[in-house]
Design a protein around this nucleic acid. Structure first.
Lengths: 103, 103, 103, 103
DNA sequence: GTGGTCTAGACCACT
DNA sequence: GTGGTCTAGACCACA
């Protein structure tokens, strides 16, 4: 899936504000699973540099509360991002944006 | 983790019988997560050829009932096996042993 | 179809007890599809107030097991009840009796 | 430590009401560690029969929020109660009052 | 009746 | 107070 498709799925339209933290909007009527929408939003934020290398990103519980989804749904998004190398997760510390190869 | 370590964690000792289906024994006092024990048992079975290529393997619910664990725990084992290419999973059909490369 | 016809199709005869849960009796020799019999039984229960507004009703699996029918059969009954506005279904939570409009 | 001493440390004074849930009061100026105060409160409740055998008791998070202490603090109380055989803890299920030996 | 998604929690290991 | 494991269910998409 292209970055453009991801954007269309969950991001605010042109002209809307883009505050710093969890401004993710979920479309609960979409064909796309909620965890995938969260994953896409995070990928967009990371690729756009809004969560920079080494930065901590909001916790599972932050997302769970902000988006009113269960923690398991958030976890699936985070889990796949870790598998794909976009973030690292440290028990007891948090989730961090991975360094990019050859920036 | 070596195949030998996996075996030690969840498999019956020498001399014990090895019936066909879900003879997996979980050690609930182990440091090793239950889903990892299930994954190891499956890997052993696949590598030992007891679930052959193209074979269907028991369903999530079969494992869940046989081992008295929740379906989510079984799923994590199956999910990782799929990511690592050991099995394929078809919605509505089942889980199958992947073909090996250059056997 | 009138409530009376529905009743004749799947409900216990007069004088039989009417316990709380799935006392639905299917007539497998009937011209009427099984899913329709289930739907009728549910409509009767709802209209009779035995599943009140906001109440959760038994799950797909409950019906499937109790009646020894496939889940797809149960789903068709639930699906039509949702389309007709008699119930709402929340993923991961359950199926609930819809509020009536101006009773 | 006697039951009377425990009581003095964390329980409401005479004449105060004793509601059902987490009415534990911590004395943050006490020489006694917070985890010990929590442990004492729980022991009092169990011995007084307010959490009966087999009952589930409030979760780590319940205590942590109600008392505004870290979860590690609550855990230490629960941990010692488990070591001493007063409660059992089941992952994913909860914490339960242990049966007494020959009462 | 399978695998896929989701809920609403719990306890566990660690910082 | 984080991420990790687990429970015990639910409904959904598909065959």
């Amino acid at each position: 899936m292209s970055m453009r498709e991801r954007e269309a799925a969950v991001l605010p339209g042109k002209g809307e504000s883009m505050p710093d933290l969890i401004d993710c909007r979920l479309n609960r009527d979409s064909f796309m699973p909620l965890y995938q929408q969260i994953k896409n939003w995070l990928l967009y934020k990371i690729e756009a540099g809004q969560f920079a290398e080494g930065d901590g990103i909001p916790s599972e519980v932050d997302f769970s509360r902000s988006l009113d989804v269960s923690r398991a749904t958030v976890r699936q998004a985070f889990y796949e991002l870790r598998l794909e190398g976009h973030v690292t997760r440290d028990k007891g510390r948090g989730t961090f944006v991975s360094p990019r190869k050859q920036p």
